[in-house]
């Protein structure tokens, strides 16, 4: 088997590093949002229970619902990035003789 193109290995590492950084950053955002919600509920009960919007809803409910909406939103951002950038890059790398396991 011929050696992979000289830069292929480095290129893979750069690409994969990018994926972990993006995945890691999005994980961090999710964790901050979630544990932020939990800490608000656990340590700032009066704030979480404060009523807004004419007494129809509390800050805690709004934040909780926002975290629920955020989860699929972050997922969508990642999937869009991976479909548009990661997959084509992997395809190109493999076409250029990246090592095939």
């Amino acid at each position: 088997m011929p050696d992979p193109a000289p830069d292929a290995t480095r290129e893979i590492h750069r690409l994969v590093g990018r994926r972990w950084r993006i995945g890691g950053a999005l994980t961090a955002v999710m964790m901050i949002a979630y544990f932020g919600f939990i800490l608000l509920v656990a340590f700032a009960k009066p704030t979480a229970g404060e009523l807004v919007a004419g007494g129809g809803v509390s800050i805690g409910i709004l934040v909780g619902a926002a975290v629920i909406v955020l989860a699929p939103l972050l997922t969508a951002i990642y999937v869009r990035w991976a479909n548009r950038h990661y997959d084509p890059a992997v395809k190109a790398l493999r076409a250029n003789g990246a090592p095939r396991p």
């Binding site: 999710m30 964790m31 919600f37 805690g60 909780g64 975290v67 629920i68 999937v79």
Partner: peptide, 24 residues
Amino acid sequence: GFDGLIYSVGWLVGWPVITFLIAE
């Protein structure tokens, strides 16, 4: 009332983590 939301949120937030780190 509100307390149920704590479980709902907790049961959902693991899913993005699966997407970002585990699934592929």
